[in-house]
């Protein structure tokens, strides 16, 4: 992407998302951290269009003027102020509310904690992490069809490592949710971290899963 110049032609696909508004909600609370505001801008436009009740809580987020034109926005000066804000907003939210957070893991955790404190069930709490979850230790993977052996560093995902050596692999959500990057697991024991039961199908989600400690994986790539 960084090699692109103005005027270059790119191939675009329609957007995909596992972070969509819940249409049964009576009220939507959108919590934006930094550039995590991006998907929530679409949410806000959608709610404004349909006349849904919603509010935005933002910390360090750009495009505030756009948001303010759509609906009520409360801005927290920093993460600590945001934490102070969340308790009352979540704790007094009307029946049938849902909360959606996009931002760094710390913000997502703070919202989840506020929702738990207000006794919300998990099904009303939605998040899109903007930064990948911290990865585990290093391991090695054998790419069977490409006849390559790749070392995956600590903090690097299997998908990143495969990219690094130039082997093509499909991917989409990078969160173990969409199933796009599922690849046959031919050998080794994996530490499965996906949400699509890849293990059940003898496959592994390249974006989130790793080798179990001390294991070397062999995958069908």
């Amino acid at each position: 992407m960084h090699d692109l110049r103005p005027g270059d032609r790119v191939r675009a696909r329609s957007p995909r998302s596992s972070f969509t508004p819940v249409e049964t909600a009576a009220h939507h609370i959108l919590v934006a951290g930094g550039v995590g505001v991006t998907p929530l801008l679409s949410h806000a436009r959608w709610h404004a269009f349909w006349g849904h009740s919603f509010e935005v809580l933002a910390v360090g987020a750009p495009h505030l003027d756009v948001l303010r034109a759509l609906g009520p926005v409360t801005v927290a000066r920093d993460r600590r102020k945001m934490a102070d804000l969340l308790g009352p907003v979540v704790g007094t939210a009307p029946w049938k509310s849902h909360v959606y957070t996009c931002g760094p893991p710390g913000l997502i955790a703070a919202v989840a904690a506020a929702a738990r404190a207000a006794h919300w069930v998990g099904a009303r709490v939605h998040a899109e992490p903007f930064v990948a979850e911290p990865a585990g230790g290093p391991f090695e993977v054998v790419l069977r069809r490409s006849r390559r052996r790749v070392r995956v560093a600590a903090g690097e995902t299997l998908l990143d490592a495969v990219d690094r050596v130039g082997v093509a692999a499909p991917r989409l959500c990078r969160q173990g949710v969409c199933g796009e990057c599922l690849t046959g697991l031919v050998g080794g024991t994996a530490d499965h971290r996906d949400h699509v039961d890849a293990a059940e199908e003898g496959r592994i989600a390249l974006c989130v899963s790793r080798a179990a400690p001390g294991e070397t994986l062999e995958i069908d790539l």
């Binding site: 329609s14 995909r16 796009e180 699509v196």
Partner: peptide
């Protein structure tokens, strides 16, 4: 159902 929920838009 799991398959349908993973289908991309369009």
């Amino acid at each position: 159902e799991r398959f349908l929920l993973r289908m991309p838009p369009g």
